[in-house]
Nucleic acid binder design. Structure first.
Length: 619
RNA sequence: GGUUGUAUAGCUCAAUUGGAUAGAGCAUCUGACUACGAAUCAGAAGGUUUAAGGUUCGACUCCUUAUACGACCA
């Protein structure tokens, strides 16, 4: 009751963090008290902002720590002396402070159990999934996946897709309106390569007749093109033609370029084939997207945006911020921005990548009026994205400043970089099958799945396999290049997705048992007097959820959430082994531990949900 | 050549953004299942944070230089 009243009292000042209310309020109490202590003991006024409270390290007693070094100058005393004096005053005057200790310049404050129970009460009173407002952007477009339509998705795309989906979910959790967008690169020379090869070697094959997913079928012809193209180059070189000229004059390449021109001219036959093959690819992509659990609110196609891009180039010419070279190509000079001159439109009037990017940025703004537009693109495009933003600024577009490149590192294999030519690309569909297989093997060996039907089992393997894969790819800081070790990615023990899923399944088992035993569902634990250390730790951990979401949203880093979910699961597992639940005699304590377990499960479910990972009721 | 990113335990990753004895997992070694799920838990061992300087009460974190690897722009 007391907790609720106090929450009401602070509500007008802090409408933001309802979820965090308990801890935030506790920290606020401590800060105010510290200010009062400084006034009383040292006759000093200290601004609240200069008081930094951090969680106490595990090895020391206490929950919050004040670093006293910054106060030494103003107070004219040593750090330990300050810590002792402030701690003594707090202990004497503030009920929430049960005790303190000073180590060097660190004042560790020990908090009364009653305070933690209040925090827990506030957590229980907060419905799952309550938004965590952060003052960040409110209308956001997250563009991710953005595949080419000439090959199936691979491991690199998976990092992209998981990151994009997760960042979108994290931003949603802050209360923002988020649109997930996919810009499909459906035109250009690479598509024509697949089409040419299909015409030559396809013999009218369809996904059905070939027994292949559409994207894999198209990819097959792309590979065939590259193979025969290389042979043609070799042939020409044997005839004495220089390599760079051979590359341009190989008959296959000439054909592909002819086809691209025919496409731009709207040639009926070419368009028909293009529609047909892209249709197959989209079916394939959609199957993969559904399988890996990502979704999109809006699809853009470069074939539908490049013309608008050309208009923007024209606009830039008229405004005089772009210029034309003698051969008729259009450029923008970004040397003042620390970049180079950049080609915007070729001499023959055909567009380049950035041409369509200009159009797409505008379309997205028209459609959604974003205050933040996030592009999930690998870091090899850093320069390109700088150019895009600088060019839009030159055009005076109001949305230029809202563009944000979520730049992530490439995924390496133990054997080195993935290279399609060397056949070292890890196919997304195959990889998912492998992780499911590994999950199945582990479940058959040690799972507790009595009563599950075949369909539920298949679903379980999928949940666990994808859980392992997603967690593996998301736990690493996005901006860092990462190593993909196939053996480690299917591991189910230690710092992995299934470890966290296991904790959830375990709690589910406890909840089932609690219902069966008729354990009371109480939310009022004000009569409890003391907490075990692991219980207090767990409450503090659970209360950190809102702060974690805010941090993850600020840094656009799902890794922050992944680390948190793992820490919560770890804390719970320790609590679980140290503290009895059903063997507890005191019914109130028993009810409390069941409620604490349930809240932990809920927090795990929501946190993993932000990563796109499901939780199983049993495994 | 120019711009830029990264460098932490044998391996893969953390470190609350300048705070305490740099933490996890894997691998190695030891212990705990007829108490609620051992896909778990407890413990041991493992570090000159690439190198050398600098800034300060305090540096993995900031500055300078160098080295290695990567990306992009020519």
């Amino acid at each position: 009751m007391a907790a609720q009243n106090q929450r009401k009292a602070t509500a007008p000042a802090l409408p933001a963090c309802r979820t965090f209310a308990g801890v935030q309020q506790l920290e606020q109490t401590l800060k105010t008290a510290l200010q009062a202590a400084a006034q009383a003991v040292f006759n000093q006024d200290i601004p609240a902002a200069s008081l930094v409270l951090q969680p106490t390290r595990k090895d020391f007693a206490g929950s919050f720590t004040l670093v006293t070094f910054p106060l030494t100058k103003a107070f004219g005393k040593g750090p330990e002396q300050i810590g002792q004096a402030l701690g003594e005053w707090l202990k004497a005057h503030v009920p929430a402070v049960r005790g303190y200790n000073v180590v060097k310049g660190f004042l560790n404050l020990e908090i009364a159990d009653a305070e933690w129970l209040q925090v827990f009460g506030a957590l229980l009173a907060t419905p799952a999934g309550t938004p965590v407002p952060t003052g960040g952007p409110q209308r956001v477009v997250v563009e991710y996946s953005s595949p080419n339509t000439n090959k199936p998705l691979h491991l690199g795309h998976l990092r992209n897709n998981f990151l994009g989906y997760s960042v979108a979910e994290i931003l949603k959790a802050t209360g923002a309106t988020v649109t997930k967008a996919n810009l499909v690169n459906d035109r250009g020379i690479h598509i024509c390569k697949s089409m040419i090869a299909y015409q030559r070697y396809g013999a009218g094959a369809t996904p059905e007749s070939a027994g292949l997913k559409g994207d894999h079928l198209a990819g097959k012809y792309y590979v065939l093109f590259e193979k025969h193209y290389r042979e043609e180059i070799k042939q020409l070189e044997a005839e004495g033609v220089a390599n760079d000229i051979a590359k341009k004059q190989a008959p296959l390449m000439l054909e592909a370029q002819q086809m691209l021109q025919a496409w731009e001219a709207g040639d009926e036959e070419v368009m028909a084939l293009w529609h047909r093959m892209n249709g197959w690819v989209y079916d394939g992509f959609n199957a993969t997207y559904q399988n890996i659990g990502v979704d999109f609110d809006k699809f853009y196609y470069e074939s539908g945006t490049y013309l608008l891009g050309k208009e923007r180039v024209e606009e830039g010419l008229q405004k005089g911020v772009f210029f034309k070279k003698e051969n008729g190509s259009v450029w923008v000079d970004l040397q003042a921005e620390g970049l180079d001159e950049k080609l915007l439109l070729r001499a023959d009037g055909t567009s380049v990548y950035i041409t369509q990017d200009l159009g797409t940025a505008e379309l997205k703004y028209q459609d959604f009026g974003y205050d933040s537009s996030i592009y999930v693109i690998a870091d090899e495009q850093n320069y390109h994205m700088q150019v895009l933003q600088a060019t839009l600024k030159k055009l005076g577009k109001p949305y230029a400043a809202a563009i944000h490149h979520l730049s992530y590192g490439m995924v390496d294999l133990p054997s080195g970089k993935m290279k399609s030519r060397e056949g070292t690309v890890v196919d997304a569909d195959e990889l998912v099958l492998e992780v499911e297989e590994a999950a199945k093997a582990a479940t058959l060996e040690k799972g507790k799945t009595e009563g599950l039907g075949d369909e539920e089992l298949t679903q379980l393997y999928h949940t666990l396999g994808l859980g392992a894969l997603k967690y593996y790819l998301l736990k690493v800081d996005p901006k860092k290049r990462m190593l993909f070790n196939p053996e480690e990615s299917v591991r189910l023990e230690g710092d992995t997705g299934p470890f966290i899923q296991y904790s959830y399944a375990r709690i589910s088992s406890i909840r089932r048992k609690a219902v069966a035993q008729g354990v009371a569902e109480t939310t009022d634990f004000s009569q409890l007097t003391e907490l075990q250390a692991t219980e207090q730790e767990l409450i503090q951990q659970l209360a950190g959820y809102a702060g974690v979401v805010a941090e993850a949203a600020r840094t656009l880093s799902p890794a922050v959430v992944a680390q948190y979910a793992y820490d919560v699961a770890k804390s719970y597992n320790r609590f679980y082994t140290e503290v009895p639940i059903f063997a507890e005699i005191d019914p109130l304590k028993k009810a409390f531990r069941v409620a604490l377990s349930a809240k932990t499960a809920e927090t795990i479910k929501i946190s993993l949900g932000l990563l796109g990972i499901d939780v199983p009721e049993r495994m």
